[in-house]
């Protein structure tokens, strides 16, 4: 016999604690399904390649490359193995920044190819699909880590 799930709130947040995570405002940019796809793509490609893929969606300043490199330097962990995909839909620019170790496995040509497929999808208004396709191309190109 099926019963309705108990939906009683166990929220213990007070004024001196942070708000419960379920109280955070809904993300207006992407739906939950799109967020789940992005999360899966980022995590799987990072896990497969041993590189660290991060995704930035937002405005990049006027020299977009400089801002993207600055973000890449702040991306935490071993930045040499970090790959930043920075998408600025307002400026219609996407930047891919690879650290020095990641650049050996992801040559600039491969990045340019992934960027091309991303911009094609973006021009059609498909942000999430483009990002996921680009991530897939980048991780396919990088392959598996040789040493482990």
């Amino acid at each position: 016999m099926t019963r309705a799930l108990e939906v009683e709130s166990h929220d213990t947040a007070t004024s001196s604690t942070m708000a419960s995570r379920t109280d955070e405002p809904l993300d207006q940019i992407f739906s939950f399904r799109e967020l789940a796809r992005l999360d899966e793509a980022l995590t799987l490609s990072s896990r497969e390649t041993g590189l660290r893929f991060t995704l930035y969606v937002g405005d990049l300043g006027t020299p977009t490359r400089a801002r993207a490199e600055e973000l890449h330097a702040h991306s935490g962990g071993r930045t040499a193995e970090a790959v930043l995909i920075a998408v600025s839909p307002g400026q219609r620019v996407v930047e891919v920044v690879t650290g020095s170790a990641a650049a050996r496995r992801l040559p600039d040509r491969a990045c340019a190819l992934a960027v091309l497929s991303m911009t094609t999808a973006f021009a059609g208004g498909d942000l999430v699909g483009g990002i996921i396709n680009g991530l897939r191309q980048l991780s396919d190109q990088a392959g598996r880590p040789t040493h482990r």
Binding site: T64, R65, A68, E69, E70, H72, A73, H74, R78, T79, A80, A82, R92, V93, V94, E95, V96, V97, T98, G99, S100, A101, A102, A103, L106, P107, D108, C111, A112, A114, V115, L116, M118, T119, T120, F122, A123
Partner: peptide, 15 residues
């Protein structure tokens, strides 16, 4: 803190 990552690679695209 920012960690320098050596020579950076990458690509740019516009649409």
């Amino acid at each position: 803190g920012a960690t320098p990552a050596g020579p950076l690679g990458g690509a740019r695209g516009t649409w």
